[in-house]
Amino acid sequence: MSRIPSTQALRALECFARHGTVRAAAEELSLTRSAVSHQLRLLERDLGFDLFNRVGTGIELTARGRQYARDVRAALVAISSSAARNAGRGLSGRLTVSCTPGFAAFWLAPRIGAFRVTCPDVDLRIVTPGRLDDVSNPEVDVFIAFGTDAMANGEVELLREVTFVPLVSPGLANRLGGIKSPEDILRADLLHLGDTEDWQRWMCAAGRAPHEAKRGPVFADMNLVYAATLAGQGVSMGDEFICTAAMESGQLIRVTEIEIQSHNAYYLAIPARRQDLAPASAFRRWVRDAILGQQG
């Protein structure tokens, strides 16, 4: 085709590809399901090739559709990032961001240079709260909290839902002669954050007794959990999202395909008194684009 497809249709495709359902895409885009379905049908017609297979009453992407959706996502991220870079020029002042220790250390810190390129004149301060869902600090402009979307007097948006998976260091895996099953995991210490609940839920998902999770040290900080994991002190119930880079580099190994969905998620919140702060809006756009690019 010679003309560029509708941007709204491309956004509908990108959302559908990420969520896998028309309903979830419609919720993110604040559209009706019929409107999203209509956009997808028009896009498929205009492109001239099949994007979807019909499965019962639903649809799923074809192999060609998945590839096209990846290309669309990359293009949308590039467009948004370019806009953010240009919008960030000339912004100045102090921006204080509060985020959980694990998110700060494993996701934000390795990427913070990219935000500095976008907004070089913004004086950025990163702080970590004592509680993962704390959004009460009056000096903070942007919160990235791990919890629910319940925040009075603020603008809140979902950044990423989270699954937990067992993670181990290559060193410990080698010392144990390999670690691939729930039985293998129980030959090592279990590392916990706050309490043993996540490991108990995982044991149930793995067909094991929940009381088997009640072993190993409990830490008050996620950084301590990951430090102990990297040092080969045991197996942790890791946040798959923020540990992606560590898994891709081989620092951490996912033990099994068994996983559990977290009851909580990462949310970005801007207090009502800060919603007109231009650096806060720029930071929100940058984080959203970076997470979208990671999902691609």
Rank of each mutant, 00 (worst) to 15 (best):
E139S: 15
D141R: 07
D141W: 00
D141F: 02
D141L: 01
V142S: 05
F143Y: 09
F143E: 04
I144V: 15
I144G: 00
A145H: 11
F146W: 15
F146G: 01
T148I: 06
D149M: 05
D149E: 13
A150V: 13
A150H: 10
A150I: 11
M151P: 02
M151A: 15
M151F: 09
A152C: 06
A152H: 09
N153M: 14
N153E: 15
E155G: 13
V156P: 07
V156H: 07
V156I: 15
V156M: 05
V156T: 14
E157W: 09
L159C: 08
L159A: 10
L159I: 13
L159E: 06
R160E: 12
E161W: 08
E161L: 14
V162G: 06
V165F: 04
P166I: 03
P166R: 06
L167S: 02
V168F: 03
V168G: 01
S169R: 05
S169C: 11
S169M: 07
L172G: 01
L172Y: 01
A173Q: 14
N174F: 10
L176Q: 13
L176A: 11
L176D: 08
G177M: 04
G177P: 08
G177W: 04
G177N: 11
G178C: 03
I179E: 01
I179V: 15
K180R: 13
P182L: 04
P182T: 06
E183L: 02
E183K: 12
D184W: 03
D184N: 10
I185F: 00
I185R: 00
R187H: 06
A188I: 03
D189Q: 12
D189F: 05
D189N: 14
L190V: 02
L190M: 07
L190E: 01
L190K: 01
L191P: 01
H192T: 02
L193S: 00
L193G: 05
L193P: 02
L193W: 04
G194C: 06
G194Q: 09
G194R: 10
T196Y: 02
T196V: 10
T196Q: 00
D198W: 06
D198L: 15
D198S: 11
W199V: 04
Q200D: 04
Q200V: 02
W202S: 11
